[in-house]
Amino acid sequence: MTERPSAAVAVDRRDFIRLAGTTAAGWLALGATPDRIRIVASLTGLPLDDELTRRNFSDNMNSRLGGLIGGLRQRGWVEGVNIRFEIRSTFGGPAKLQAAIQEIIDLKPDVILTGSTVETAAVMATTRTIPIVFATANDPVGNGFVESLAHPGGNVTGFTNSSAEMGGKWLQLVREVVPDLARVGVLFNPVTTPRAGRFFLDSIEQEAAASGVSVVPAPVNAAAEIDAAIGRFSEAPRAAMIALVDSFLVINRQAVVAATAKYRVPMIYPFHYFIDAGGLMSYGPTLEVRSADYVDLILRGTKAGDLPVQSPRKYELLINRTVAGALGLKLPFTLLARADEIRE
C-alpha cells in the first residue's frame, strides 16, 4: 500500500499545478479529451526545502522543473487534464533513497526523471521496464546505464553534463588564477562522484604532470569532514582546489564555500550553484532544459532506449571578482576576457 505524500510533497504538488498555468477546466473547454492521466515522476537528491529545489519550481523556463512543465504544456500535456507530476526527495541516506524510489515505483509512472548518477543507478536496480530519463550523468556508458550514447538500448536515456577531459580544463583555469601553484587538492565524495573520482582524476593528473603540479585527492564522506579537508590546503606549498561533479558537494555547497573563505583556498567548481553561494569561479555546461522533448516522445510511445544520449552544447566560465580580491588573487585580463559572466 502506498503511503500518502508528506505535507512538504503536497505543497510541491500545488506548485506543480500553479506552474501548469492553465486550469484543467479551461483545457477541457477547449476540447481536450485525454484517454488517461499520465504520471511523470521526478527524483531529486536535494532536500525539498533547499534553495535550488525551490528555484527549480519557479515558472522560469530555464529552471529544471519549470522548463519541463512549460515544455510539456507547449506539447499539449497539462496538469490535471492528461498528466500528473509527482516529485520525491531522496535526501537522507540510503534508506530514504530506497523508500523514495519504492514510493515512485508504486505509483506506476509512465516515465521517471532522475537528477544524479546515484539516483539513476538505484532506480535501474529496481526497474528495467519503466522508462527513465536522467537529467545529468557524467559517464552513462561506464556506469552501465546505456549500451552507447548513440544507441542506449534498454529503458534509459538522458543528458550528460561533462566529459572526463573536464578535469584537465579545471586545472588549466585554476593555474591561470594561481600561477605559482605547486599542488592541487581534488575534493569529492567517493560514493557520489563518477567512478569514485577516477572519471576526472585521470585527466587532472595528466595535466598536472605536464605542468609540474602535484595532485592531492581530498575525499570526504560526510559534511563534517569538509572543513578539515579544505583546511589542509591553506599551508605552503601554494595550493588551490578543484571540486568534482558530485551531488554530495552540491547539497553541501554552503559548507564548501564557507571553508574556502575561512582558509583562503582558491577553488574552481563545476556548476554555477557554487558561485551563487559565494564561490570563486566555475566552469561547466550551460543549463539547458531539454527533458521535455524526451518525456513527450516517451509519453507518445517512443522507447527510451531508441533516443540517443545528448551532450552539452555550450560551456560557461563564471568568475566572482570580489571573492578573488578577498583571497588576494590578481585575475589576469586574458582570463577575464574569456569569462561568460563576471560577478562583483
Rank of each mutant, 00 (worst) to 15 (best):
G212C: 04
G212Y: 04
S214V: 15
S214L: 14
V215Y: 00
V215I: 06
V215H: 01
V215Q: 10
P219A: 09
P219E: 05
A224D: 13
A224I: 03
E225G: 06
D227T: 03
A229M: 09
A229Y: 06
I230K: 01
F233R: 07
S234M: 11
S234D: 11
S234T: 01
S234I: 02
E235M: 03
E235S: 09
A236S: 11
A236Y: 04
A236G: 03
P237K: 00
P237C: 03
R238I: 09
A239V: 07
A240G: 14
M241A: 13
I242M: 12
I242P: 13
I242R: 11
A243W: 04
L244S: 12
L244R: 07
V245H: 09
V245A: 13
F248E: 06
F248K: 01
L249C: 02
L249K: 00
L249P: 00
I251S: 03
N252E: 12
R253L: 07
Q254S: 11
Q254K: 12
V256M: 07
V257Y: 01
A258W: 02
A259P: 13
T260G: 05
A261E: 10
K262H: 10
M267F: 05
I268H: 05
Y269F: 14
P270W: 08
F271H: 09
Y273Q: 08
Y273C: 00
F274P: 13
I275Q: 07
I275E: 07
I275Y: 01
D276C: 01
D276N: 11
A277H: 05
G278T: 08
G279V: 08
L280T: 01
L280A: 03
M281F: 01
Y283D: 14
Y283M: 10
G284N: 13
P285A: 15
L287Q: 12
V289L: 11
R290W: 07
S291M: 15
A292K: 10
Y294N: 12
Y294W: 15
V295H: 09
D296H: 15
D296A: 14
I298G: 04
I298A: 04
L299Y: 01
T302S: 14
K303G: 13
G305W: 06
P308Q: 06
S311L: 12
S311I: 04
P312G: 07
K314E: 14
L317D: 09
I319E: 09
I319D: 09
T322S: 14
A324E: 04
G325P: 07
A326P: 01
G328N: 04
G328T: 03
L329T: 03
L331D: 13
L331N: 11
P332K: 09
P332Q: 12
F333A: 15
T334E: 15
T334N: 12
L335V: 05
